[in-house]
């Protein structure tokens, strides 16, 4: 019978329309700015720099190795390496970035910088409402805008951050054990040497 197929189709639309009043599966939209979906943990958009402790400038994990700058496919990262070294959060002397810019109008959120970073210093953010009236300046994120605390990282990607923290803690414990061994060895054979920290911190 002509029209049978259309009627059959209309029963489907009716089922979906009426179903949207009772079933969550049929009504999947939400009223966005007022209602928000829970954030999915693996979500990524733009990179940020992680720092330990409370002082962002002192605790920045980045040691300015510039691997991410080289590997970034669209080349949106710009780093200037420091001439001097300063102690990082664990007290070890490291270079630090005097400039660290990410142009998020170029960034394509591929997270290759995160993958190649050997220091777990750069991670992906989940903040997406970043529109700006200034096309160039407003989308060029500088070091101070990029720096986010480790607590923030733990908040947005809990599973991943816990694993990273555990790995870092293990590494630090290993380094400390090694340092203790060398100091013990030094104590056994006394060597009058000034601590390097005292000389180079400015």
């Amino acid at each position: 019978m002509l029209g049978e197929g259309i009627l059959k189709g209309l029963t489907e639309t009716a089922r979906n329309f009426l179903g949207s009043y009772v079933s969550k599966d049929r009504l999947t939209t939400i009223q966005f700015p007022e209602e928000r979906l829970p954030q999915i943990e693996a979500t990524r958009d733009f990179p940020f720099l992680v720092y330990d402790g409370t002082e962002w400038e002192a605790g920045l994990r980045c040691v300015s190795c510039q691997i991410c700058e080289k590997e970034c496919p669209p080349k949106c990262i710009y780093i200037e390496k420091s001439k001097d070294k300063k102690p990082d959060a664990t007290g070890k002397l490291q270079f630090y970035p005097t400039t660290f810019n990410i142009d998020i109008s170029v960034c394509m959120s591929c997270q290759i910088c995160v993958e190649v970073c050997p220091f777990d210093a750069i991670k992906m953010n989940v903040e997406f409402e970043m529109s700006s009236e200034d096309r160039f300046g407003g989308l060029l994120l500088r070091k101070e805008q990029l720096a986010k605390s480790n607590e923030y990282y733990n908040k947005i990607h809990p599973t991943e951050a816990t694993a990273v923290d555990a790995a870092l803690a293990e590494e630090r414990a290993k380094a400390e054990a090694k340092a203790r061994q060398t100091t013990e060895a030094k104590a056994a054979t006394p060597a009058p040497m000034a601590t390097p920290e005292a000389g180079e911190t400015k």
């Binding site: 002509l2 049978e4 197929g5 259309i6 059959k8 189709g9 029963t11 489907e12 089922r15 979906n16």
Partner: peptide, 10 residues
């Protein structure tokens, strides 16, 4: 459901 809606639609 999708095929009900479409496949036999005249």
């Amino acid at each position: 459901e999708f095929e009900n809606l479409l496949t036999s639609n005249e």
